[in-house]
Design a protein around this nucleic acid. Structure first.
Length: 668
RNA sequence: GCUGCUGUAGCUCAGUGGUAGAGCACUUCAUUGGUAAUGAAGAGGUCAUGGGUUCAAGUCCCAUCAGCAGCUCCA
């Protein structure tokens, strides 16, 4: 006897073997028709999944109203896409085809080079398949049976996957639809007709099982929805996100440029972008002063031996610019990190426990030779400035210092309205040999990191293999407008660079004995370049008043009022605002439009009425015409907004183009 | 680095192997106005770069450089 509890509180009992679809049919024919999948005790399963025969379960039937059903349907759509590709091209080998955040993809290995030009034909074939409306049929096989099936259909990747990735599975499942059969965990929707709208989006290379040692396959990205409106809305959202792209806006708003003659991945900060950067660094400098950091300056190069000592050189040779060779025993490296230089400042003289923690800060520019395919606008570059600092402290100070660093990073991000981030704890991957130091030291560092985050109530996710080579770290990670993840701020714990094998740092303790300090590396922005890129998208180029390159524009209704308007402009300048006047012989509407498109926070409109009353008509970029006010009053209002560093408008959400895959690992 | 796509005026983009185009921006002239585009005229090009095919190449082929998407990488 099985008790089935439904979400509306109803309870049904069965003494025969049943599936969710049977329950749906039991309730009504309409529901049975609409049921696409189900959830048993919160677990998403197929409409045909067998329910237990004994006990009691919570059952939720999923229809096209339910978010969870969308993923199931998309996976079915992936099968249909694969089936279409196999119908159209010869020798197609299937790899993986999971659902992702904004849709799904399928990896193929085939002779023909797929391009966007093939999409219409594939979509048309998919339409035919959907119209035929053949059901998805689940088939379960033993390991031997499954191997026989994939050998029979001659699918090499599936054979390999059963033999390696799925070696622990006793039984395996397939889904069959017409002539198409695919190794698949499922679940699937009953029939393809519930796929209301779909679209192939792009094709790109992807390595089999994610390793660059393996063959590169062709990955087709696509998305699907229950109806055309949802698809249209999704595509519109995607377009809108693209309009926020910092590379587009950076060009349009003249914030930065990249010139091939200067070099790939090297940012030229244009005057307007430089204003924003200056505001940001001023803001951080204020924080550093408050938290008792000392400012230092170090050169952009250092002897190769310095980096041999630090461990950078041997471990990361490939991602550095080649050394500057002066003679055989004199070679310099463009600095890939600031820490070795800061360490030498610490070592400049003996240190006493009385002066710890020593906090050394620098906006230090570093150079890394990133692979050309990785470069991306301002977010992935080859030369960038870190808002860097290194804290040298005693073991017992680590926790508090670490906490302060996290707090400062949170404060800085919150001040900019950047609240949509996640904290990632980057731990060592024990199977990877690139990390320096012994495992005991690593464990201790990782443990103290976990405990600080726990005490601060931060919901941090630990990820193996994301550590710096010298120690574990807490990263602040955000998404860009396309859904790609970028690491911004970081706080890293380091027991290794101070060690005997590296720089052998010391301080004299209260006991008059030598002790080893611990280092903390930290950067709230991470890199100014990447942060700027993310910030442009965050504000869609419309910076808050305190950051805006041009804060106010004075507009005259006619050139007759130029003299008075210039006086107002001078007053604004005097008050410390970045202001320009538009005295062109254009109509006021045209000048407003230009200022609006340049995303200038405030416009002061001046005509005869304003001239007579010593006032300005204030137009707000966001709220429009605010009416007239006295010049002094308007200036006070703006001053207040700057002083508060007010953030009035931000843009969140992404196109979901990212491959932030949901459970692809175990999928087959 | 790998796979695929792209490169035409400052920007966004048209352009059948046969004289290099549009809109916006820019310059000049007229217009002097009240909250998102006044009108007219003008100027602006080694069609990314270097080879090749052809009577003829922006267009076809090859290489290089750069950009885009994804993969791999990321101190």
């Amino acid at each position: 006897m099985l008790e089935v509890h439904l979400p509306d509180g109803n309870v049904k009992s069965y003494d025969i073997a049943i599936t969710p679809m049977d329950v749906a049919a039991d309730i009504g024919a309409g529901l049975a028709k609409a049921t696409l999948a189900a959830q048993i005790d919160g677990q998403t399963v197929g409409f045909d999944a067998p329910l237990p025969t004994e006990g009691s379960v919570n059952l939720r039937l999923l229809t096209n109203k339910d978010k969870e059903a969308l993923g199931v349907m998309r996976h079915s759509c992936a099968h249909i896409m694969a089936r279409a590709v196999m119908r159209l091209f010869d020798g197609v080998q299937l790899a993986f085809g999971p659902t992702i955040e904004g849709g799904f993809y399928y990896d193929f290995d085939l002779e023909h080079k797929l391009t966007a030009e093939d999409f219409p034909a594939i979509e048309a074939e998919m339409k035919k398949i959907i119209k035929e409306n053949e059901p998805f049929e689940r088939i379960e096989e033993s390991r031997e049976g499954a191997l026989a099936v994939v050998k029979d259909i001659d699918q090499h990747y599936k054979i390999e996957h059963i033999e390696t990735g799925l070696s622990g599975h006793e039984t395996l499942s397939f889904y069959r639809q017409g002539e198409f059969i695919d190794l698949c965990r499922g679940p699937h929707v009953p029939r393809p007709k519930s796929i209301g709208a779909y679209k192939l989006l792009s094709v790109a290379g992807a390595y089999w099982k994610g390793s660059s040692d393996n063959k590169q396959l062709q990955r087709v990205y696509a998305t699907a929805f229950f109806n055309k409106d949802d698809l249209a809305a999704h595509l519109e959202k995607l377009e809108e996100a693209k309009r926020r792209d910092h590379r587009t806006l950076g060009k349009q708003l003249e914030l930065f440029a990249i010139n091939p003659l200067v070099g790939q991945g090297l940012i030229l900060w244009l005057p307007k972008g430089a204003v924003v950067r200056q505001q940001l660094t001023d803001f951080v400098s204020e924080q550093l002063k408050k938290h008792e950091y000392e400012s230092v300056f170090t050169p952009n190069i250092g002897k190769v031996d310095l980096y041999k000592t630090s461990g950078h050189y041997p471990y990361y040779k490939d991602s550095q610019f080649p050394p500057i060779h002066v003679s055989d025993d004199e070679e310099y490296l463009l600095k890939p990190m600031n820490c070795p230089h800061h360490i030498m400042i610490y070592k400049n003289r003996p240190r006493s426990y009385r002066e710890l923690p020593v906090r050394l800060s620098e906006f230090g520019t570093v150079y890394r030779y990133e692979q050309s395919g990785e470069l991306n606008g301002m977010t992935r570059v080859r030369g960038f400035c870190q808002d860097d600092a290194h804290i040298f402290c005693m073991e017992e100070q680590v926790e508090e210092e670490f906490r302060k660093c996290i707090e400062m990073t949170q404060y800085v991000l919150n001040s900019l309205g950047l609240t949509d981030y996640r904290v990632r704890l980057g731990f060592r991957d024990p199977d990877n040999g690139k990390y320096v130091g012994n495992s005991k030291v690593w464990d201790r560092a990782e443990q103290s990191l976990v405990s600080v985050c726990k005490n601060m109530g931060i919901d941090a996710v630990a990820e193996a293999g994301e550590a710096a080579f010298y120690g574990p770290k807490a990263d602040f990670v955000v998404n860009d407008c396309l859904g790609r993840e970028w690491q911004l701020g970081t706080v890293q714990l380091d027991y290794n660079l101070p060690s005997t094998e590296r720089f052998a740092l010391e301080y004299v303790g209260a006991d008059n004995q030598m002790h080893r300090p611990v280092m903390i590396h930290r950067a709230p922005f991470g890199s100014l370049e990447r942060f700027m890129g993310v910030l442009i998208e965050h504000f869609a180029g419309a910076f808050p008043l305190w950051l805006a390159p041009e804060q106010v524009r004075v507009l005259v209704v006619s050139q007759k009022f130029e003299e008075y308007a210039r006086k107002v402009e001078a007053e604004l300048k005097q008050a410390g605002f970045r202001v320009k006047g538009d005295y062109r012989p254009e109509k006021i509407g045209s000048k407003i439009r230009d200022a609006q498109l340049e995303l200038i926070p405030y416009m002061f409109v001046i005509g005869g009425r304003e001239m007579e009353t010593e006032s300005v008509a204030v137009r707000d970029r966001i709220d429009g015409d605010l009416g007239s006010m006295k010049v002094a009053e308007a200036i006070d209002k703006l001053k207040q907004e700057v002083a508060e560093r007010k953030v009035r408008q931000v843009f969140t959400g992404s196109a979901g183009l990212g491959t932030a895959a949901t459970g692809t690992k175990d999928e087959y």
